Each structure stands twice: as structure tokens, then as C-alpha cells.
Simulated scan of single mutants.
Amino acid sequence: MSLTVPVSDRAAPDLSALADSCLGYLAENPEELLAFMQHAGLDPQSLRASIGSVRLQHGLIDYFASNEAILLALCANGNFSPESFMRVWHRINRVE
């Protein structure tokens, strides 16, 4: 009998590092940055003020999780898998 052990959260990237990767991707893609800011209701000043906040980190992760094209591009550029990204998304959106 073989037991399947779920992949732990430790195998997923760190939330802060992943959010920084998301923000870096957006900074390199101005059209996507604008779309994120419109989606989140942020202007440039409020975006700058929220850098590093948990709320922005969660918003970035949610935004990328909902857009497969930029999620795949981010993962390819960041050398991590979409599955590891989604483990982070799942961890921060877990309802307990």
C-alpha cells in the first residue's frame, strides 16, 4: 500500500518573494501594470504607498492567478512552476 504525501507549502515560493516577482513583471510590462492598477483601483501614489503590504501581495497573487497568460510568462521568467505559484495562491486563500 502506497501513501501519497501532499506537497508541502515549503515547496512553494515565499509569498513576499513571489509578490515581488509579480510586481517586477508588471514593472517590465506597462500595459499589464496599468491593467492591474485599474483592476485594483490603485493610482500611482497609492500603489507606491502599498508596496510591501500584505494586502498588495495578496492582490498581486490573486491577479496573476486569474490571468493564465501572465501567470505562465511570470513562471517561465522566474524559473518556477505554475503549480508552485498556485500552491501559494491556495495557501493565502484557504478558508479554515
Rank of each mutant, 00 (worst) to 15 (best):
Ser81Met: 08
Val7Gly: 00
Leu26Trp: 04
Gly24Met: 03
Leu47Ser: 03
Thr4Pro: 04
Ile70Lys: 04
Asn29Lys: 11
Ala65Val: 15
Ser66Arg: 11
Gly52Ser: 11
Glu96Cys: 04
Leu42Cys: 07
Ser46Leu: 13
Leu60Ser: 06
Ile92Pro: 01
Ser2Asn: 05
Tyr25Ile: 08
His58Ala: 06
Tyr25Cys: 03
Ser8Trp: 09
Glu68Gln: 10
Glu31Ser: 13
Gly24Trp: 02
Ser53Asp: 09
Leu18Asp: 00
Asp20Gly: 01
Asp9Met: 05
Met1Ala: 08
Ala69Leu: 09
Ala35Leu: 15
Arg55Ile: 15
Ala35Arg: 15
Asn79Val: 09
Ala49Gly: 09
His90Tyr: 00
Asn79Lys: 06
Asn67Gly: 07
Asn29Glu: 12
Arg91Gly: 00
Ile70Gln: 03
Phe85Tyr: 01
Phe64Val: 10
Cys22Arg: 03
His90Gly: 00
Gly52Asp: 10
Leu71Asn: 00
Phe36Thr: 12
Leu18Val: 06
Asn67His: 15
Leu15Lys: 13
Glu32Cys: 11
Asn77Tyr: 13
Glu28Gln: 03
Phe85Ala: 00
Ile70Arg: 07
Pro30Met: 09
Ala65Thr: 14
Val7Thr: 10
Ser2Tyr: 12
Trp89Tyr: 03
Asn77His: 11
Arg87Phe: 15
Pro44Ser: 03
Ser16Pro: 06
Gln45Phe: 15
Val95Gln: 00
Ser84Gly: 01
Pro13Val: 10
Leu15Trp: 08
Leu26Met: 04
Asn29Ile: 15
Phe80Asp: 00
Leu34Phe: 11
Arg10Gly: 02
Phe85Ile: 03
Ser16Glu: 08
Asn79Leu: 09
Ser53Arg: 08
Ala19His: 03
Trp89Val: 01
Ser2Ile: 14
Leu72Lys: 05
His90Phe: 01
Ile70Gly: 02
Glu32Val: 14
Ala35Glu: 14
Arg94Thr: 08
Ala35Cys: 15
Leu15Tyr: 08
Gln38Lys: 05
Ile70His: 04
Leu47Thr: 06
Ala73Asp: 07
Gln38Ile: 14
Leu42Glu: 06
Asp14Trp: 04
Ile61Leu: 06
Gly52Arg: 06
Gln45Asn: 09
Phe64Lys: 01
Gln38Gly: 02
Glu32Leu: 12
Ala49Ser: 05
Ile92Thr: 01
Ser8Cys: 05
Ser8Asn: 02
Ser66Gln: 12
Leu42Tyr: 12
Pro6Glu: 01
Ala12Thr: 13
Ile70Cys: 07
Asn77Asp: 12
Phe80Arg: 02
Tyr25Pro: 08
Leu23Tyr: 10
Gln38Thr: 09
Ser50Ile: 12
Leu26Arg: 00
Asp62Met: 12
Pro13Met: 11
Ser81Gln: 09
Asn79Tyr: 12
Met86Pro: 02
Ser50Glu: 07
Asp43Val: 14
Val7Ser: 00
